[in-house]
Amino acid sequence: MRFDGAVIKEQGITFAIVVVKPTVLQQHSSEIEKVRAGFSRYFPRMPVILMAQKARGIPTYHGRTDIVKFLANIDPRRIPWKTYTAS
């Protein structure tokens, strides 16, 4: 499996962002949490934020509220995106 994501350290907090399809964030919250938990094994001991982009490229974040608020004010082009390969 391959996915795009980033690890960021900001204001003393290290967290991960994982890009998902918009339909993932349209699911019931328990299903979203299952997706987040699945990615947590690749980013141990870090909060995982899920990010989807709408058709116009506008990002939507889901996760810890303080981190989501922070990311809402950041241009997503400034995020150090990387493609991860997971087995």
Rank of each mutant, 00 (worst) to 15 (best):
Q11W: 01
R56F: 05
S40W: 01
A55G: 08
I74T: 04
G63Y: 02
V19Y: 01
I79Q: 11
A52P: 01
I32Q: 09
A72G: 09
T65E: 10
R2V: 01
G12V: 02
R56C: 05
G5H: 03
A55Y: 11
A6I: 14
D66Y: 08
F3H: 09
L25Y: 07
V7M: 06
D66N: 12
M1S: 15
H62Q: 02
P80C: 09
Y42D: 10
R36C: 05
T85M: 13
K34V: 07
V48L: 00
I13V: 09
T85P: 06
F70R: 07
F70V: 02
H62L: 00
G5P: 04
F43I: 05
I79C: 11
G63A: 05
R78K: 14
M1T: 11
Y84D: 06
A86G: 09
W81Q: 15
D4I: 08
K9H: 09
Q26P: 04
R56T: 07
A37W: 10
S30L: 13
V35M: 12
K69Y: 11
N73M: 06
A16C: 12
V68W: 03
F3Y: 14
F43H: 06
H28G: 06
V18P: 01
V20Y: 01
V35K: 11
F15Q: 10
F3L: 09
I58Y: 11
I17P: 03
H62G: 00
K82W: 11
I49H: 00
V35C: 07
P80K: 08
V24A: 09
V7F: 03
V48R: 00
G5D: 04
R77K: 15
I32H: 04
K54V: 06
K9S: 05
L71E: 13
P22D: 15
D75A: 07
I74C: 05
V7D: 03
K21Q: 11
V7T: 09
A16H: 10
A72C: 05
A72M: 08
F15I: 14
K9V: 01
M1P: 15
D4Y: 14
V68R: 04
P44C: 13
Q53G: 06
I49S: 00
A52Y: 03
V19L: 10
K21F: 10
A52R: 04
R64K: 14
V7R: 06
S40C: 10
F70S: 03
A6Q: 10
G57R: 08
Q26F: 13
S30C: 08
A37H: 12
F43P: 01
R78M: 14
T83V: 07
K21E: 13
A72E: 11
R64P: 07
S29Y: 14
I74V: 12
L71S: 10
P76K: 04
G12P: 02
R36N: 07
G38F: 13
Y61R: 05
G38A: 10
G12T: 04
P47C: 00
Q53S: 13
K54L: 12
G5E: 03
V20T: 02
A52D: 06
N73W: 02
V48G: 00
D66H: 09
